[in-house]
Design a protein around this nucleic acid. Structure first.
Lengths: 188, 188
DNA sequence: AACCTGATGTCACCTGGTGCCATCACCCTA
DNA sequence: TAGGGTGATGGCACCAGGTGACATCAGGTT
């Protein structure tokens, strides 16, 4: 047992999630989070670049897994087939963290600042997927559009998923949404 | 000629655009913008809620025009047909401000904070368009997806438009992108 | 001439965020 | 066992974004 507990980052995340949930994001101060975690404001900013980022730890991992799914898909896959594979990968991860997903989602939905951060994370994810699609031979525009459709589907499906009383699997919701998107795009 | 010039808001916008362009967004201070406009920091924050918003004045107008275009479209229009109408409305507005569009776009592209703000503006626009689509009888998911495809197209097309040396009209670029999206969605 | 109103300035204050240096527990080595 | 790294943390000063409260002042109104 040293001077510092080994899991400072996790403690900060838990403290932040708790306080954001109890008092709301804006009403919570970084000093308050740090205090609850037994640390100081200065240390908080060593682990997280800002007050928002503490809720988005792990988004790089999701990005990597979705990109990997695109890379690993069979050569015959179409653009949206590749997107489907990426969404399946996301589904696995989402089900793992279902316990916290609802709370986290409500917190973000209540704060414009946090929504902004979430949107830029999605944009980053789309850029990464677009890169993977280009690497598989898709044209620039096609790759970009397909990737953005992917994050669109993910976003819409995620909202439905956390609000669904039946706890329908994310994968199923996402597939339905993808099918519906196809239908919309092919009509008229 | 009173104590105050009548166009404080415009002066602040021009000062901000100039300074963001010259020194960059992060290196520019609100006090500096205000000084350049012959005002004070406090007055800046009476016109704009924060340092980012000064670049997004007029986005409500664009939103209204795109929504109006959806409402005014012929009854026979499909979901993506309605989106096309909204994009045509956007095209008119974009061509009006082409002069500043490039500078503004470069400034935003250089700042993560500003990209976040732009993304949430797009999300707000998508929500407004989705509302208009629902009002025309589309289902909830279809309306949301179609609206998000609309902002996706707008985003992609806008980037191409400002970078295009041939100054191809926005409308044409957007229509091409929309057609390509249709193709992607109907393949595989 | 007194009054009202709206735009602005002034000032104090809080919080997010950062740079710099001190501190202290632990580990390694002589 | 003493001493010297090393890395995580604390402490402090500071800057900038943002806000509330109050003063000021020009112009129009009565």
């Amino acid at each position: 047992m040293g001077r510092w507990q080994p899991d400072a980052r996790v403690r900060l995340q838990e403290a932040a999630l708790a306080l954001y949930g109890e008092r709301g994001y804006e009403e919570t101060t970084v000093a308050g989070i740090a205090e609850r975690a037994g640390l100081t404001k200065r240390t908080f900013f060593r682990y997280f670049t800002d007050k928002r980022e503490v809720l988005f730890w792990g988004s790089e991992l999701l990005e990597q897994q979705m990109v990997a799914a695109i890379e690993a898909a069979p050569a015959s896959a179409s653009a949206l087939g590749l997107i489907g594979a990426a969404l399946d990968a996301a589904a696995v991860r989402f089900e793992e963290v279902r316990e916290f997903a609802g709370t986290r989602h409500r917190i973000i939905a209540a704060s414009r600042e946090l929504q902004e951060r979430e949107l830029i994370k999605a944009a980053s994810l789309a850029a990464a997927m677009a890169g993977a699609l280009r690497a598989r031979g898709l044209g620039d525009t096609a790759a970009t559009l397909a990737a953005l459709m992917g994050t669109t589907i993910m976003h819409v499906a995620f909202k439905r998923w956390v609000d669904d009383p039946d706890q329908t699997p994310f994968q199923q919701i996402a597939r339905d949404a993808l099918a519906q998107l196809r239908e919309i795009a092919s009509t008229g």
